[in-house]
Every structure is written in C-alpha cells, then in structure tokens.
Simulated scan of single mutants.
Amino acid sequence: MTIEARLAELAIELPEAAAPVASYVPVVVEGGFAYVSGQLPFVEGELVKGRLGENVTPEDGQAAARACGLMILAQLKKAGLLEKVRRVVKLGAFVNSAPDFTGQPAIANGTSDLMVEVFGEAGKHARSAVGVPVLPLGAAVEVDAILAIDMD
C-alpha cells in the first residue's frame, strides 16, 4: 500500500507545505537520509501559539505536535519523498514550556503516534522531547525529523 493510500484510509488530509520563515530549506537529502527542518503547528491555517503549563493544555499541545507531524509529511510530499520513506529514524520535539512543566514526552507523542499510524513499524523512531522557553513566532511546539529514504 502506498503512503498516499494509507493517508486516505486514515482520512488524513495533509496541509499545504509551509514556506520557510528564514534562511533555510525545508528538506535536505544526503546519504540516504532526508532531514526535515523544524515544522510549526498549523491547525486550519492558524499557528498554534502559547506555552504548555501556562496557557496551552496538554491535549492542545498533543494536537499541535500532531499538526507538526502533518507538516513534516507535507514537506516530504512536496519534495517528492513521501513514497520513498523507509523508516522514521529520529524526531526532535521542542515544546514551549513553563518552567515547571515536565510533560514534554507526552506532548511529543502527538507526532510519534502519527508516524506509527502512517508508516507502521517503519514509523517507530528514536526521539528527543525538550522543553524550551520560547519558539519561533510564539509556537507551542516545533518538531524536526530525520528519515531513511530509498535513493533509487
């Protein structure tokens, strides 16, 4: 089954891939890997802003992380790589967190669970989930990815 067919089966519609907000490219391919720059959470075209433990609930944080994952998939599709993914190798989740918020791993599950839904066993990955005091544009979450891809 293709990834596009799997997305349709799951009733997942990918957003339009976001343009970079600074001097970088969304995806770099090198040595059999695709490196996807940090993606921000857009839900219905609006950036999810705020800080976990302050004005964003854990449920909304998880949904924001899922939105980051959808944007990662959208960037891969735009780069013509979505069907070439062999394995999700590593995700880096950055969570805009109040000083006493320690639930970053649960927030990052929003992206992690999506990758397993879409890629099955190949979606299981290594991961970092880090609390940070601020993210670009005030985003609640940012996630980057490293994926092994077929080079043929």
Results as ranks from 00 to 15, higher is better:
16 E>W: 07
35 Y>E: 07
75 Q>L: 01
35 Y>L: 13
81 L>W: 08
37 S>Q: 06
67 A>T: 04
39 Q>D: 12
32 G>S: 03
34 A>L: 06
121 E>C: 02
121 E>S: 07
40 L>Q: 04
60 D>N: 15
54 E>P: 09
77 K>V: 06
26 P>S: 14
2 T>H: 10
50 G>I: 12
124 K>D: 08
143 V>P: 04
24 Y>H: 06
37 S>H: 08
13 E>C: 08
12 I>E: 02
71 M>C: 06
10 L>V: 14
55 N>Y: 10
9 E>D: 15
44 E>K: 15
119 F>S: 10
116 V>P: 02
111 T>H: 06
134 V>F: 07
20 P>K: 05
73 L>Y: 04
14 L>S: 09
113 D>Y: 03
65 A>S: 15
123 G>F: 06
135 L>S: 12
77 K>N: 07
79 A>L: 10
126 A>S: 14
57 T>G: 08
72 I>Q: 10
5 A>R: 11
128 S>E: 14
85 V>C: 10
106 A>V: 03
100 D>V: 13
67 A>M: 11
99 P>C: 01
131 G>C: 06
7 L>F: 00
99 P>V: 04
94 F>T: 00
70 L>I: 10
3 I>F: 11
14 L>N: 05
72 I>P: 09
119 F>A: 05
22 A>D: 08
42 F>T: 04
105 P>M: 02
9 E>I: 02
110 G>Q: 09
38 G>N: 02
117 E>A: 14
109 N>D: 15
22 A>W: 05
130 V>K: 05
99 P>W: 02
12 I>A: 00
77 K>P: 07
53 G>D: 13
120 G>H: 04
131 G>P: 03
124 K>V: 15
93 A>R: 00
54 E>I: 13
146 I>M: 14
76 L>T: 05
30 E>S: 04
91 L>T: 06
36 V>C: 14
113 D>T: 10
47 L>M: 10
28 V>R: 04
149 I>V: 15
95 V>M: 03
66 R>T: 11
32 G>P: 11
148 A>G: 03
122 A>T: 13
98 A>N: 11
136 P>C: 10
69 G>N: 06
76 L>P: 06
145 A>L: 15
13 E>W: 00
56 V>G: 13
127 R>T: 05
43 V>I: 15
147 L>G: 01
122 A>E: 15
16 E>P: 07
125 H>E: 15
105 P>L: 01
28 V>H: 03
1 M>V: 08
151 M>E: 15
122 A>I: 09
130 V>L: 14
62 Q>N: 04
105 P>V: 01
116 V>E: 12
8 A>T: 02
99 P>F: 06
61 G>M: 13
76 L>S: 09
47 L>Q: 09
88 V>I: 15
3 I>N: 00
87 R>P: 02
62 Q>L: 12
81 L>N: 12
123 G>T: 07
43 V>P: 01
117 E>N: 12
97 S>P: 02
61 G>I: 11
134 V>G: 06
118 V>E: 09
133 P>A: 06
59 E>K: 13
42 F>A: 03
84 K>R: 11
137 L>Q: 15
32 G>W: 01
89 V>C: 00
48 V>E: 07
33 F>S: 05
69 G>D: 09
135 L>I: 05
141 V>R: 05
92 G>P: 00
63 A>P: 05
